[in-house]
């Protein structure tokens, strides 16, 4: 079987049956050596669990050169058997999305402009403002009962947070004294 590199996949078809007979019947080394190397891409399929809710649906994540190229339900997972909810199906867009912001944008109170800020500035600013608000609104006692809470801050978890992130967020909120703690984890 002598096939040129160009159009190898096509050329093989023209003599497919003859080629297939060689494929089944003979040791492969000679045949493989007669064809130039074909360009391929290597994909890794890893199994994981959907990060969204407590159901724990199985996922297969396909990656090429470390980048996610596909996420689908794991058909062999006993919980979801390959199916996913609308959020699970859109998981790919969490990993790969050109509309996803990759830098901090800040709009100062009263301003109509967004400014780009560094993470260092942002995190310290958030800490400063949380502390300021908490101190100003902290309530130690109510009706002679210790409550240790702040009524000035509410905390809202986002739908794309995973279980571990939600755990940390709720731990943080309770340690600060936030009682208005909610999460948008609904489909």
């Amino acid at each position: 079987m002598k096939i040129s590199r160009r159009g190898f996949l096509g050329a093989a078809g023209a003599s497919t049956l003859g080629g297939a007979i060689t494929l089944i019947g003979l040791p492969k080394t000679a045949k493989a050596a007669s064809v130039p190397e074909i360009k391929t891409v290597e994909t890794t399929e890893s199994t994981t669990i959907c990060p969204y809710c407590g159901v724990g649906c199985g996922l297969i994540v396909s990656t090429r050169e470390g980048k996610v190229i596909n996420i689908e339900g794991d058909p062999d997972h006993p919980i979801n058997e390959g199916s996913l909810c609308s959020k699970g199906m859109a998981l790919f867009q969490v990993a790969v999305n050109e509309r996803r912001l990759q830098k901090v944008k800040y709009r100062a109170p009263g301003s109509s402009e967004w400014e780009e800020k560094s993470w260092d500035w942002t995190l310290s600013e958030i800490a400063k403002r949380v502390k300021k608000t908490r101190d100003a609104t902290f309530l130690k006692k109510e009706d002679d009962k210790i409550v240790n809470r702040t009524n000035g801050i509410a905390c809202m978890g986002g739908a794309s947070l995973d279980n571990e992130e939600c755990y940390l967020l709720s731990k943080f909120a309770r340690s600060v004294g936030i009682t208005y703690l909610e999460h948008q984890a609904r489909i």
Binding site: T40, V41, T44, E45, S46, S62, D76
Partner: peptide
């Protein structure tokens, strides 16, 4: 048969079990 398992040695380690795709032939692997 399980998608992410080798049918021959039952290997399930995704580092050693890979997919090769010929260029422009996404249905074949």
């Amino acid at each position: 048969f399980k998608r992410t398992q080798c049918a021959f040695c039952l290997n399930e380690d995704h580092q050693t079990l890979q997919i090769l795709n010929p260029e422009n032939e996404e249905s074949y692997r």
